[in-house]
């Protein structure tokens, strides 16, 4: 049969007004697709490679929106737009690494539409997989991105397990650096995941990027008070100044005392199928002074064990340098 692309197929659209209604709809329809900002979903729909019968648009669920104080920290509704996160005064002043990361996403227009829940739940951008190639991640038995002729400049240097795609989220490493919690509603129950555990690799489940399964709904992201007002750093390397997924990005939160690192959380993305928290590097850094040498050593440590594909060797020095900068140049906002 012939195949047509770049044209959405029809689906049944539901627009619930509450979380309970949403959960109810998810219970009623096995393949109910939760639509947030639509920036990932619509591309899948236009590809016609994902063809849900039922789409549940949660943009009308007010409970999922907004930024609220919570135990000295913040609770951010999953449907809060990236622009709201960029412009929120509390986030800017106390959790600046998240504003900076959200500001690095795509374009102003996309940030107006894209949400924090969508940004962390988005699928990989591997162009073989997104192009509908029947790869491992798609249930097939090959990785098209890891052959002697593959075009894989954007693909991973860590964490490959049959699949070599990367997680493209800019906010994910910032949330890991802030030790954020992801609140997930499944049926009648609510689960809370540490951000670093929310993301999963292909060795856990090759068909998914996160713990979310059909029927699950991200309702909020909680930012604990713990890392407020730390020294932060976020940076994203890319080809264009906007509308570009990261080649590599990095986020840190550092607590210092007299120029010495007391505690640190350090995460990177676009180097593995999931955002990576670099705990070994963190361990190495605690108690160290912040200077060029310590930062460089951290960078060198970060790249240990990197496994190169045909076209992505540049990611190794890029990761090393970004980690170095994330230590050396971190500052209180």
């Amino acid at each position: 049969m012939a195949i047509i692309r770049d044209m959405m197929a029809a689906f049944e659209l539901f627009q619930p007004a509450s979380i309970d209604e949403t959960v109810d709809l998810l219970g009623r329809f096995d393949d109910g697709w939760v639509l947030a900002g639509g920036l990932d979903s619509f591309e899948w729909f236009k590809m016609r490679h994902r063809r849900p019968r039922v789409v549940i648009d949660v943009s009308g669920v007010e409970e999922l929106k907004g930024i609220r104080d919570s135990d000295g920290g913040l609770e951010i509704g999953a449907m809060t737009t990236l622009t709201e996160i960029v412009t929120n005064e509390t986030i800017r002043q106390r959790f600046g690494v998240l504003s900076t990361a959200a500001y690095a996403v795509a374009t102003p227009q996309i940030r107006n539409q894209g949400t924090i829940g969508g940004n962390i739940s988005q699928d990989t951008r591997c162009w073989y997989y997104r192009g509908g190639w029947p790869c491992y991640r798609d249930g097939g038995n090959i990785c098209y991105a890891d052959t002697p002729t593959s075009m894989n400049r954007e693909h991973c240097i860590f964490g490959a397990s049959r699949c070599v795609a990367v997680n493209p989220s800019d906010t994910a490493p910032a949330l890991i650096a802030l030790d954020a919690k992801i609140v997930v509603r499944s049926g009648g129950s609510e689960r809370v995941f540490d951000a670093e555990d929310f993301f999963i690799g292909p060795s856990t489940d090759i068909t998914r990027m996160t713990v979310l399964k059909p029927g699950d709904l991200v309702t909020a992201v909680r930012i604990p008070a713990e890392w407020a007002d730390s020294a932060f750093y976020f940076e994203k390397a890319r080809d264009r100044q906007s509308w570009d997924f990261p080649l590599v990005n990095v986020a840190t939160a550092i607590k210092t005392s007299g120029g010495t690192i007391q505690d640190i959380r350090l995460a990177v993305n676009a180097v593995a199928p999931y955002p990576m928290r670099l705990t070994r590097v963190e361990d190495q850094l605690r108690g160290q002074p912040i200077n060029e040498d310590v930062a460089l050593a951290a960078g060198e440590m970060a790249i240990q064990g990197a496994h190169l594909l045909r076209q992505n060797a540049y990611k190794v020095p890029l990761l090393r340098n970004l980690v170095k900068r994330a230590i050396r140049d971190a500052e209180v906002q």
Partner: peptide, 13 residues
């Protein structure tokens, strides 16, 4: 357009 696209999906080629 939806019908036209669905029709193309049903063309044997």
């Amino acid at each position: 357009e939806t019908t036209a696209a669905d029709a193309i999906d049903r063309i044997g080629i």
